[in-house]
């Protein structure tokens, strides 16, 4: 699935670390399950979850810069006029409900 700039997306609330297998995840904990919007498509790169464990069959995935309002990420904090971007692979993103 590809996303146009400005599209609202929700990061999958998935925790592969908790499944007891060794993984390398580049999606920070604090954005999982959170909704932001696509800032830009950065490019297409090999999936680091495969590359980090030496797998040669890493699929190519679109990488997006996603921008969040910091107040949504850390409710209760004083976060006026503060945003945060993270670079996230397409398989971690879903259209926001």
């Amino acid at each position: 699935m590809s996303f146009a700039p400005g599209t609202r997306v929700t990061v999958r609330n998935d925790w592969p670390e908790a499944k007891g297998v060794k993984v390398h995840i580049r999606t920070p904990h604090f954005v999982r399950g959170k909704t932001g919007r696509i800032e830009t498509l950065i490019g297409v790169f090999g999936d680091p979850e495969f590359l980090a464990v030496g797998r040669k069959d890493a699929p190519k995935r679109a990488l997006y810069m996603v921008v969040f309002d910091r107040a949504d990420l850390f409710p209760g904090t004083n976060a006026r006029n503060e945003t945060l971007t993270a670079d996230l692979y397409e398989n971690w993103l879903e259209p926001a409900p």
């Binding site: 580049r26 920070p28 503060e82 945060l84």
Partner: peptide, 11 residues
């Protein structure tokens, strides 16, 4: 606006 840029991937 303060924009925190988390360098999480290939950039």
């Amino acid at each position: 606006e303060i924009r925190v840029v988390d360098s999480t991937a290939d950039m």
